[in-house]
Write a protein that binds this DNA or RNA. Structure first.
Lengths: 313, 313
DNA sequence: CGTGATTACGTTTATCGTAATTATA
DNA sequence: TATAATTACGATAAACGTAATCACG
């Protein structure tokens, strides 16, 4: 049994049971793969792939078991290389972050600045996407760390850690009539056209639920993927904006006024996601600690081992 | 990176950093290992073993990380073979049980009989030992299933499942004076010489604790590893026996009388131990189900995944 | 027939064991 | 000086790629 052989059968599965495709993606010859698959099957005494004639048409029951374990093994092999590189490379390496706009624009800049100062030789990459995309990137190993407010806890292959809590605020153009109605109520808010996040983003689910609870139907005139767009349209007078309080800055956002809305919508928890079972390099821990000081190496390790209860903010 | 290389470095560690010894146990040449270690180190870009001149004198920090992961990988590789053999061999295979005398003699015979009938081609092996030995056999993979009443839950690498509860009974020769003092009390019992299990066996800890609690010092005249020996000496009139209620059979043990002692000593739970993370073959599940009907495949799988709360009897 | 897997075969590379060498305790 | 790891080298075997063959749609 060779690690290659495991790579081969996994790639065949990934390529929809097409050996030729697998050979291409692995930069090798198709007969080579074919032979190794057969050798492996002979050694194990089972058939992994169902064949009709010479075509691969399915995965046998034992094949499923073998593929599942093979995946584990290769994942661990990946970890081994990662761990070595961590020690060997000193401070160099690559860190791939996946985050939503809100995080990338408002929560991460200072953290990234400090991280780069601390690890000048680590190449920092940034993938921006929806919470679901982020989760899948991390699951597939395309990203090392995922940061988002929604969706992350839906994936059993992810370990998620609470980073910080935040609330929404409502923004309005200066001189807007609603500014006289503070503290705000949901009923008041429901009278105006609203501009807020797209579904599946930055706590949008909490916003919906709040209006549902009082039986009101908000008039959402426009949805956007990020607070900057929302602010733009609020400035144009198209409606009131509901955004993350993190995204409002009185200085920068002149012409706009923010109103406290923590009492209207449930608070949100930004979470950090890691793939279960991956080896964490020193700079992974460092980034996490910079981002959320309470997430020390010890706390992260505890969570990774699934040990004990979830860390509470 | 080859699986062999991982085997090599692990064996070197096991043999106390002696490459020559490792070569012997792996039935290969010392230079071969030496070279492969170097190749692996070069590939990973780290040194795994500290050397002073040409001697191996320690494991480096990266080496520790690598060895830990290597162990995981080889364990999974073992699982892969196991899984294959499970499907390939049909009903054949090998099942190694580790159990204490009490279990082997009184709890297991019928289970073993049924299992053999169900799986005539599975070679059943039996290792009898102390609870600690049993635990270590299972941890090392020398035994597939461990069964004992004590010690098993001290090992984090073991998954343990409750099988059944049982109580102690007191046995005496026919006509013994104590037979008039029923129901028994600990104070009465403390007046007589006692014969019971050796420390670390079959609930002996509960017996000690019971006497401690009332501040009495039992007169333990003789300790033995199993109930049969105890019964023999009780028959000879050397004292009263305290044994597992499972071990007394009115028919077979003529000349001896058993007295209820469930109210004197805490009840004991026989537990079944499995090594965390091992692949369970169909006949492993079958044996477990025969031994304890409530331990269905589902229940065992849940426990193996560390999911949810412990099963309660 | 075209796509896709297997068989055949030759080249290259890697692995393993023996023997010689070197370093340490 | 004995023990133990490395280096050198030759034999064996494994892996890989090319070309030819075979099977299914």
């Amino acid at each position: 049994m060779k690690l290659q052989q495991l790579r081969y059968i996994l790639e065949i599965q990934r390529q929809g049971l097409n050996v030729s495709e697998a050979a291409e993606t692995l930069f090798t010859s198709q007969p080579g793969i074919s032979k190794q698959v057969k050798l492996l099957e002979d050694e194990l005494g089972i058939t992994i792939f169902e064949r009709t004639g010479k075509r691969f048409t399915g995965v046998t029951e034992p094949g499923k078991a073998v593929l599942r374990i093979a995946e584990q093994i290769l994942r661990e092999a990946e970890n081994l290389k990662r761990a070595s590189a961590d020690f060997a490379g000193g401070t160099s390496g690559r860190l791939v972050l996946a985050a939503t706009h809100t995080q990338a624009r408002y929560a991460l800049p200072l953290v990234v600045r400090d991280f780069i100062a601390q690890h000048p030789n680590v190449k920092l990459e940034f993938h921006q996407g929806s919470p679901t995309q982020i989760a899948e990137w991390v699951v597939n190993g395309d990203a090392d760390l995922g940061i988002a407010t929604e969706a992350l806890d839906q994936y059993s292959q992810l370990i998620t850690l609470p980073v910080r809590q935040w609330s929404h605020c409502v923004i309005a153009p200066e001189g807007h009539a609603i500014l006289k109605h503070q503290p705000l109520s949901l009923n008041e808010l429901a009278k105006w056209p609203l501009i807020t996040y797209d579904t599946a983003f930055a706590g949008r689910s909490r916003i919906n639920r709040a209006f549902e609870r009082i039986g009101a139907t908000p008039n959402v005139a426009l949805t956007a993927l990020d607070a900057d767009v929302i602010k733009t349209y609020v400035s144009l007078g198209l409606g009131l904006g509901i955004i993350s309080a993190l995204a409002y800055d009185a200085q920068r956002d002149s012409g706009l006024v923010a109103m406290e809305a923590a009492h209207l919508f449930e608070s949100n928890t930004t979470r950090l996601a890691l793939r279960r079972g991956t080896y964490l390099r020193r700079y992974d821990y460092d980034f996490i600690a910079l981002f959320a000081s309470h997430l020390s190496r010890r706390v992260v390790d505890m969570a990774m081992q699934g040990g004990g209860d979830e860390y509470q903010l």
